[in-house]
Design a protein around this nucleic acid. Structure first.
Length: 859
RNA sequence: GCCGGGAUGGCGGAAUUGGUAGACGCACGGGACUCAAAAUCCCGCGGUGGCAACACCAUGGGGGUUCGAUUCCCCCUCCCGGCACCA
């Protein structure tokens, strides 16, 4: 075949992809003699077109896929679509197209884009979560969980837009207001289905220790999210309306119980409602608390406000009268929706007490410290060193002894006991939205909530609805809603809530192996491939998606569907790709975002940045700092332009070279020219080698070049194994530099060096590597060529260089025989004139020799 | 606010995890080639001082441990991710 003189990436890539496609090169088969390697990247939401985060994610996955194939594994890399979700409904409203059409069009376009990247994907296993043959199994497992009580119904709090009369996602609440209407959002209690993830809290926490292949930071985040805390649940008795009641609270600091000066309940707490009944000011406050979003970040950062209820409860141990307050910072969803307040030893309670002039009393002392109510000091909350004081019989006890004694006394009175509490809450999966998996329930006036019988699955979502922003359009679809009750046969109403899209993504990885099975959720092929050997995705998924997936896996295991305990053996959390966010606030308070490509940065006469304008209208826009590239912030950079201009190999190489996979990457394409130049040089060098001729490289030069190449290769192999692909890319540049520096191309070192270089590059730039491998006659197919390993013999040296330091500062270097012992090294170093000059007669106190590295002389 | 992570030249980043700070690349400056430009190739490139050899300073800021700290410990600042209905 004629080898073109000039590097033409588009032609090379088209040919290579055609060849891989026609030969079915990436079709994975279950039966093989080789060990299996299931390499999975988080599937994309089909938002319209690929963004940089996708290119980064899928290139990382492809590098690992191709690397492991060359390492001798039987590799599967599948792909699919997380196809349900809110953006499709927003697009539907904006363009008057059904979400289904929008979604399928996006999938078709993005699939083409992915294919142009040359990813080694087995497309025969493709899935889309919006298709009934996938989501029927969501419904099927939901029903199994319902049977076992793992799914149950209770009320939950949602954001309610009072103008549009619709439930809002947190993302649709901007500064406490609905994004379309600008109306102040209210909290509303509605019935929802929940999955009992808390039943698995202990296992989800404990099993983190069985995941050494997960980043430490992700395990830490999950552990904190589950938030196991040991404490005491106890009650303050009270009498109200001639009835006795108990106000339950949970605390991790029972040792401070004698310092309780008030109790705070959430605005949604029954006692708050009771008190508000005949207290208009309090009713107004409770009403005020009902406004604003349900987001925890908002709850935690808002001004702490409270109001007394006039209701008093009795301290369970001291019998003191304690007033109940309503606090806007008390969360109804955590613990009991009520907390004991100990202003002396809890920082938040302290500030609240100062604000409302409530008593503060000291009940814990730390030796040598003086308590003062003037200002909070961190030691007030120190449970390591604290001892009880002003606490009657508990005086002198340390934290755990005090908790034990107090819990025992509460138990004896029937007013409480030790309890383990999790921060983790059960998973509310009901969404009052159209574009999602229907919840398979039928509401019958006579029979209540009736599960859809398995024989009637799937409950198919009609694909021709166009939402209008006011409620779920399914409610207006008589053909969907009206049905017969499966129990009594009378007319009934189908549930119109759909499932959280996290349900779809909680098990898709188990479906790829058997995506064509229409009889079962999973089969033997799932058992062959699972668990995923390497999972790759954004760090933003560190908690929710990964925790829900772990939970579903354990549920499926307990139903006997699968045998593995954990879905992902190894996890690589890719850093976010950031770009600047530009926006304007409209008169209605709505925020409009502009793409950085349409923005011009303005500079003053000293070249300092002084503003930014939108090119189309010349008017200023605000900068919202750096943020992850996203559709909602409109700050994505279209990678297609990069691929169109440079080709997939250069785009992939640049993406890998730009930074380590796990680091946050602020997007800047300034360096792409360097990657382009490198691959051009590689091609040109390949042409020269193929043409041959010129002098044979001298033996000595061949030896030093081999040493250099194998030294670089050794490091590259270390780096690729720890997923530091940016230095693998630079290693390939170093090898080309070393070869190119030689005067000729005739010599064994060229043939070996280029063979190493092409194989090292094959996972990153598969197309050019494939073409050069063939053109230079190394073999038919680099895909399955053996991974290059270091030749230790090439690394042998007679002499090595050691750095010489005086008092830790570098003062020179010396060459010593590679086998010189400590004494010999010291002799050589001390004889060095530069060393003698620096010592200049001062007494040598100590000589530190680090073998193979340096000598430090302390004077 | 809470949890997790980060900060190294003009820029992306490297430093075999306590041992030469700045590999590799970008940008920039100089030169070669060219009628010219592009492309390509060669040289230089953290800061200050010095003709130079070289010296001093320098890994967000401040302390500490150590013969030696970008790396370990404590405090602080700023930035990023997550906070349960964005995916």
């Amino acid at each position: 075949m004629y080898m073109q003189q000039k590097y033409n990436p588009h032609a090379i890539e088209r040919d290579a992809q055609k060849q891989w496609d026609e030969s079915g090169a990436f079709r994975a088969a279950e039966s093989a003699d080789k060990p299996k390697y299931y390499c999975l990247s988080m599937f994309p939401y089909p938002s319209g077109k690929l963004h940089m985060g996708h290119v980064r994610n899928y290139t990382i996955g492809d590098v690992l896929t191709r690397y492991h194939r060359m390492k001798g594994y039987n590799v599967l890399q599948p792909m699919g679509w997380d196809a349900f979700g809110l953006p499709a409904e927003n697009a539907a409203m904006a363009n008057n197209v059904p979400p289904a059409k929008w979604t399928y069009d996006n999938i078709a376009y993005m699939k083409k884009q992915l294919m142009s990247l040359g990813l080694a994907i087995d497309w025969s296993r493709e899935i889309a979560t919006c298709k009934p043959d996938y989501y029927r199994w969501n419904q099927w497992l939901f029903l199994r969980m319902l049977e076992k009580g793992l799914v149950y119904k209770k009320t939950g709090t949602v954001n309610w837009d009072p103008v549009d009369q619709t439930v809002l996602a947190n993302e649709q609440v901007i500064e406490g207001r609905g994004w379309r209407t600008g109306a102040v959002v209210e909290k509303r209690e509605i019935p929802m289905y929940y999955m009992a993830i808390t039943r698995y809290a202990d296992e989800l926490l404990a099993a983190l220790d069985t995941l050494p292949g997960w980043p430490e930071r992700v395990r830490a985040m999950q552990a904190n999210w589950i938030g196991k805390s040991y404490g005491v649940r106890f009650a303050f008795p009270y009498t109200l309306d001639d009835k006795d009641g108990k106000l339950w609270v949970f605390t991790t600091r029972a040792d401070t119980i004698m310092g309780v000066t008030f109790v705070a309940v959430a605005a949604e707490h029954p006692l708050a409602a009771r008190a508000a009944r005949d207290n208009p000011k309090l009713a107004a406050f409770v009403e005020e608390c009902r406004h604003g979003s349900v987001m925890e970040a908002d709850m935690a950062t808002m001004d702490k406000k409270g109001m007394p209820t006039g209701i008093f409860v009795v301290h369970p141990l001291s019998d003191e009268k304690i007033e109940v307050w309503v606090g806007n910072y008390v969360l109804m969803g955590y613990g009991e929706g009520a907390v004991m307040a100990v202003p002396g030893h809890d920082e938040r309670d302290f500030h609240f007490a100062k604000q409302y002039q409530l008593p503060i009393s000291q009940v814990v002392d730390v030796a040598g410290k003086t308590f003062s109510v003037d200002a909070w000091q961190d030691w007030y909350a120190d449970k390591e060193n604290g001892r009880c004081v002003n606490s009657g019989k508990y005086d002198g006890l340390a934290y755990s002894a005090a908790v034990d004694a107090i819990a025992a006394d509460l138990k004896a009175k029937g007013l409480g006991e030790k309890q383990v509490l999790y921060r983790l809450r059960d998973w509310g999966i009901s969404r009052q939205r159209y574009w999602g998996c229907p919840i398979p329930i039928i509401h019958c006036n006579a029979c209540g909530d009736v599960p859809v019988p398995d024989a009637q699955l799937p409950v198919v979502l009609p694909e021709d609805c166009v939402p209008d922003g006011a409620g779920n359009p399914l409610n207006k679809r008589a053909d969907f809603v009206n049905c017969a009750c499966p129990a009594c046969g009378k007319p009934a109403r189908r549930e119109t809530d759909t499932m959280d899209t996290f349900v779809d993504s909680s098990w898709y990885y188990s479906r790829y192996p058997c995506s064509d099975n229409d009889k079962a959720m999973v089969d033997a092929r799932t058992s062959y491939w699972m668990p995923v050997d390497q999972y790759i995705g954004g760090i933003e998924h560190a908690i929710l998606h990964l925790l829900y997936s772990r939970f579903w896996t354990k549920v499926m295991r307990d139903f006997g569907l699968v045998k593995y305990d954990e879905p992902f053996a190894n996890l690589l959390t890719q850093g976010m790709v950031l770009n600047e966010i530009f926006s304007r606030k409209t008169d209605s308070g709505r925020i409009v975002y502009f793409n950085p490509a349409d923005i011009e940065i303005q500079v003053d006469d000293k070249a300092n940045r002084c503003g930014a304008i939108l090119r189309s209208d010349g008017q200023p826009v605000e900068s919202g700092g750096m943020g992850t590239m996203s559709k909602s912030k409109n700050n994505g950079v279209d990678p297609q332009a990069l691929i169109d201009e440079y080709g997939a190999d250069i785009a992939r190489f640049f993406m890998m070279f730009a930074s380590p996979p796990e680091d946050t990457l602020v997007w800047n394409d300034a360096g792409v020219e360097g990657s382009s130049r490198f691959l051009k040089r590689l091609w040109t060098y390949g042409v020269r080698v193929r043409n041959g001729g010129g002098p044979t490289i001298a033996a000595g030069l061949q030896k030093t070049t081999r040493l250099e190449i194998h030294t670089v290769l050794k490091q590259a192999n270390y780096d690729i194994a720890r997923h530091q692909f940016n230095t693998v890319a630079s290693a390939s540049m170093k090898i080309l530099n070393a070869l190119d520096r030689l005067a000729g191309v005739e010599g064994e070192v060229v043939r070996e060096g280029l063979s190493i270089l092409l194989r090292l590059l094959a996972p990153i730039t598969p197309h050019i590597s494939h073409q050069l491998w063939r053109d230079l006659g190394y073999g038919e197919d680099i895909l399955s060529a053996p991974w290059p390993e270091t030749d230790e013999a090439a690394l042998a040296q007679d002499e090595i260089a050691l750095v010489v330091q005086i008092n830790g500062k570098k003062r020179g270097d010396v060459r010593v025989p590679h086998d010189a012992d400590r004494a010999a090294i010291e002799n050589i170093v001390m004889a060095d004139p530069a060393v003698q000059k620096h010592i200049s007669g001062q007494p040598v106190k100590k000589v530190i020799v680090v073998p193979g590295r340096l000598v430090n002389i302390v004077v």
